[in-house]
Design a protein around this nucleic acid. Structure first.
Lengths: 236, 236
DNA sequence: GGCCCGTTTTGCGCTATCGCAAACTGCCTG
DNA sequence: CAGGCAGTTTGCGATAGCGCAAAACGGGCC
């Protein structure tokens, strides 16, 4: 089993307030694994046997309805935890996690959680904070879906992705993992057709440059303006 | 200050795993207060100086956009906590809490939280579970807003309210606090006009009975069927 | 180097839902 | 008991965005 160096993870929010020697102990309970691009890490509804910390790569968490429609719950960036089902009181994963890029994760057995929390209460507090932050993001998303038009929502979504996983280029910011129009549609509650039309429009105005599962924000500032424009403010 | 009997709150999820004598100590740090109908308990953006446990009544948590639109984040039922801003890492309340009925709450100063969590780690774990449950509900709501039509969303919203705060009558289930079409619109991402039209339709089919800030589900089962109907399934 | 498949683009009609406006109703207040 | 007001109902366009269909594109695989 690959040994994980504590220095790689010591600075993560999850381990804030945990002493280095304790961290060592915590990591001893984990194993690491690699998931190639486009492989599932766990499936919605499956027994939550493990929880995860993403070390490298990108993971998409998506939820599927009984009728087959999907939404993207979030993209997981390196350093973030996911699959915390049992920490929040569920025996089954509420979503499917899929590696969108070759990814490396740390894996703890679910059964380790109660013990870890008891020995290192800071972990529970830290997790509470992250889950709280995610709750707030969800509320923001609901607010946007309720009050904004599709174009604004797409703008917000791209800006958020750029902030979380943007790679600075000299001619803009590139979203650092493969993402399709369909994915963006599933993040914003619209259809891939509409997303495609919007991006085409932006491309012709020089706001973005995009292609197959690839998006570069060429003019983030103008996109911010777009994201703030209300239905009736300003000209088209 | 009114003394709160431990037996009133001992069974709440928040205090699961807390010993009765400890509970006593916890309650000593709280004060109780009464908020008349339609008074604000805290305002979005204000310093999070306290967190709350609702003992009696009903509280609406709502979020407002810079442009003045509102959404209802949730309705708080007796026994639930709210205003946990700092527990989840925010110094300011992310929403406004308003008593929709005469309400009684327990209030702890925010400053008590770290101490409580340290002395009674179960509280952090319990809170993590509730926040996790709310996160899941938010995701469900996003899923609904993305994939369902307004009528289905309204049906789901009413069923959820009935489950959480329904009063059984012999001729149906009444939602046990004043709630307007506007409120429902703000829960489902639509307009009060559309909600009004939908409820009128249902009323003429005998599914509901409703009036000024009052809704009775006369035929919950049929409403469940409605909530499950997809855009193309079955006749209108 | 060519083929195949997943992704993207684009056109076109359709409709669920919004937005505005106006009338109505039932409560609560004075 | 009258009046006023918040909440509700309803009508009537207007339209953003969907849904379907088809074509174009681009990358990777053999």
């Amino acid at each position: 089993m690959a040994k994980v160096d504590t220095s790689l993870v010591a600075h993560l929010p999850l381990f804030a307030g945990v002493k280095p020697e304790d961290l060592e102990e915590i990591l001893r309970e984990a194993r690491s694994a690699r998931y190639p691009k486009n492989t599932a890490i766990f499936e919605q509804g499956a027994d939550a046997q493990s929880f995860f910390l993403l070390l490298h790569g990108h993971v998409r968490a998506a939820k599927t309805t009984p009728t087959g429609e999907q939404i993207v719950v979030r993209y997981v960036a390196p350093g973030e935890t996911f699959g915390l089902a049992m920490a929040i009181g569920t025996a089954h994963y509420p979503a499917t996690a899929m590696a969108v890029d070759d990814s490396v994760v740390l894996i703890w057995p679910t059964s380790a959680w109660p013990r870890l929390v008891e020995r290192f209460p800071a972990i529970a507090a830290n997790t509470l904070q992250t889950v709280g932050a995610r709750l707030q993001e969800s509320h923001t998303r609901i607010l946007e879906m309720s009050t904004q038009q599709v174009e604004q929502r797409v703008a917000h979504a791209l800006l958020r992705l750029a902030k979380q996983s943007g790679k600075k280029l000299d001619h803009g910011i590139e979203i650092d993992f493969p993402i399709s129009r369909q994915d963006i549609a599933q993040m914003t509650g619209t259809t891939l057709h509409t997303v495609s039309r919007i991006l085409s429009g932006w491309e012709s105005q020089g706001l973005v440059e995009s292609g197959r599962q690839r998006i570069i924000l060429r003019d983030p500032h103008k996109i911010v303006l777009l994201s703030e424009r209300t239905a009736d403010s300003g000209p088209a």
